[in-house]
């Protein structure tokens, strides 16, 4: 029984993940303290503050992290907070421009560099250079406009001119944000990470080195819930995520029951 053809397991997973996508079950969302912390941090910022949102992911983790980016951007724009977008992941820089355009369009914000700037990717030790001179580090935004000419960047010199840095990633780049902008330049750091990385970053949350942590797609769904955006991709994905988790728990239980039944049978035959 344990040597079942794995293709049947794959088929069951496929069905379990697909059905909630179609029927969209509306389960209640319970928020976590680490997500509430980031929400409160952004709520506490005065109108016109500047925030760095670094979209440090590539297409492989986009389904888990882009909903976070969208929810955070929505929150910032609703509160009148200006956002400097960037990425530390070359393969992800074209994802950033899409999410900024989409959310700005929803809020009728023109792409004139007043409320947001998306600078894309730069090679080198960018986090270190940003601590000294952001304009010199990036020089232009993603569509090659001189950063000095954009209204949001007037009076900006370096990291000190930003209230909060948020990095969304599926890699260990979060440590660099904690080490450089966080420890070296004393900035407040919040992270959004894929589900598998959450446990790595929890110690930094408890030590106060992080002011918020969004854990995987659940974190995105919780943030959407907090800002009252119930139609987001995070919430939509929670049905499939719930079904997949339940199925894996069920498979573990079934696998163990069969395993112990087999062992009992072996013992009985041995006697």
């Amino acid at each position: 029984m344990l040597r079942i053809n794995v293709r049947y397991v794959y088929l069951i997973v496929f069905i379990a993940v697909t059905i909630p996508m179609i029927f969209q079950p509306n389960l209640p969302t319970v928020t976590s303290p680490s997500v509430e912390m980031l929400y409160k941090e952004i709520e506490s910022l005065p109108r016109g503050s500047r925030v760095i949102l670094s979209l440090d992911y590539d297409p492989s983790t986009e389904p888990e992290l882009q909903p976070m980016a969208e929810a955070i951007l929505r929150h910032c724009f609703r509160r009148g907070i200006r956002v400097f977008g960037m990425t530390m992941n070359l393969q992800g820089q074209n994802l950033g421009t899409k999410v900024f355009s989409k959310v700005a369009k929803a809020f009728h914000i023109p792409d004139d560099g007043t409320m947001y700037v998306y600078a894309g990717f730069r090679v080198g030790p960018v986090l270190l250079q940003m601590g000294e001179d952001i304009i010199e580090t990036f020089q232009t935004d993603f569509v090659q406009r001189d950063l000095r000419s954009l209204p949001m960047m007037q009076g900006v010199k370096n990291l000190r001119d930003f209230e909060l840095c948020i990095s969304l990633s599926g890699t260990s780049i979060g440590y660099s944000w904690i080490n450089w902008p966080g420890t070296r330049y004393g900035k407040k750091i919040a992270l959004g990470v894929t589900g598998v990385l959450v446990t790595n970053y929890i110690p930094f949350l408890q030590s106060g080195q992080l002011v918020g942590l969004l854990p995987g797609i659940k974190g995105a769904a919780e943030y959407e819930h907090l800002i009252g955006y119930e139609k987001g991709r995070g919430k939509q994905a929670m049905g499939s995520q719930s079904a997949a988790h339940l199925l894996i728990i069920l498979l573990i239980i079934v696998g163990n029951v069969i395993y112990f039944m087999g062992r009992r049978e072996e013992r009985r035959q041995g006697q």
Partner: peptide, 22 residues
């Protein structure tokens, strides 16, 4: 790029389900 990388990463859930059973 986007669909290829997303698909490769999402295959993990199938392997995890199979591994959890076996």
């Amino acid at each position: 790029m986007v669909p290829l990388q997303s698909t490769t990463f999402s295959l993990l859930s199938f392997y995890m389900a199979s591994a959890s059973y076996r």
